[in-house]
C-alpha cells in the first residue's frame, strides 16, 4: 500500500481498472478533502454533503473503465463531481420551476478576451476571501469556475474539461465572476 501511495493518480486508476480494488482507497483518501471543500462551496453540508461525496466516489468506481489513463485524472473525477452536484442542486430546486430553455450565450459565441493570466498570490488570496464572503450571492455559472480556479488550482483548459464548455468561456466567466464578487462584497 505504501508503494501505491507514491504513484500518480492515473497509475492508480489503471491498477483499479485491472482489478486491484484496494488501491481505490488511495484515490478516495487523496480526493476526499478536495471534493468535500468543493461540495461545501455549493452550500451542501453535514449528511447531505457526506452522501453526495459517497455518491461521487461510487460513480467514480463504477465508471473508472471509461477513464483514459493517458489523460489527467483530476478533471475527470471533478467532472463526475460536477454532474452529481448539478443533479443535487436540481433536486433541491425540484419544487421550484426549472427553466429548460435556460440557454447560455457565453458558450455560443467566441470571446476574444479570455486569456489565462498568472494572478499573484496576493490576488488569489484576496479572491478566495471574497469568495468565502460572497459565495451565496453569485450565480452558479460564475461560482463554479471561480472555485475550480482559485481553490482547486485548475487551469482554464482543465476547467473547460470539467464543465464541458469552451476554454475562452471559462476565462470570461472567471473575469465576470471576479467583478460580480467584488461588487457583491463591497
Amino acid at each position: 500500500m505504501q508503494e501505491t501511495e507514491q504513484l500518480v493518480d492515473e497509475k492508480i486508476a489503471e491498477l483499479v481498472q485491472n482489478g486491484n480494488v484496494d488501491v481505490f482507497g488511495v484515490l478516495v483518501e487523496r480526493y476526499e478533502s478536495k471534493l468535500s471543500r468543493y461540495i461545501n462551496k455549493f452550500l451542501f453540508y453535514g449528511d447531505e454533503a457526506e452522501d453526495l461525496l459517497q455518491d461521487i466516489f461510487i460513480k467514480t468506481y463504477i465508471n473508472i473503465k471509461s477513464f483514459d489513463t493517458k489523460q489527467k485524472f483530476s478533471p475527470w473525477i471533478y467532472r463526475i463531481a460536477h454532474n452529481e452536484l448539478i443533479n443535487a442542486i436540481k433536486k433541491r430546486k425540484s419544487n421550484k420551476s426549472i427553466n429548460f430553455f435556460d440557454f447560455d450565450m457565453d458558450v455560443l459565441l467566441p470571446h476574444p478576451i479570455a486569456n489565462e493570466t498568472a494572478d499573484g498570490e496576493m490576488e488569489r488570496k484576496e479572491i478566495r476571501e471574497l469568495l468565502d464572503k460572497g459565495l451565496r450571492e453569485i450565480d452558479l455559472k460564475y461560482k463554479e469556475p471561480l472555485v475550480l480556479y482559485y481553490f482547486e488550482d485548475m487551469s482554464y483548459a482543465e476547467i473547460a474539461d470539467v464543465l464541458k464548455i469552451p476554454t475562452s468561456t471559462v476565462g470570461v466567466r472567471i473575469k465576470r465572476g471576479r467583478e460580480a464578487l467584488r461588487k457583491v462584497v463591497k
Partner: peptide, 11 residues
C-alpha cells in the same frame, strides 16, 4: 470511515 464504507460496498 468513508474509505471503509466505499471499499466494503465494492467488496
Amino acid at each position: 470511515q468513508l474509505n471503509k464504507e466505499i471499499l466494503s460496498q465494492i467488496k
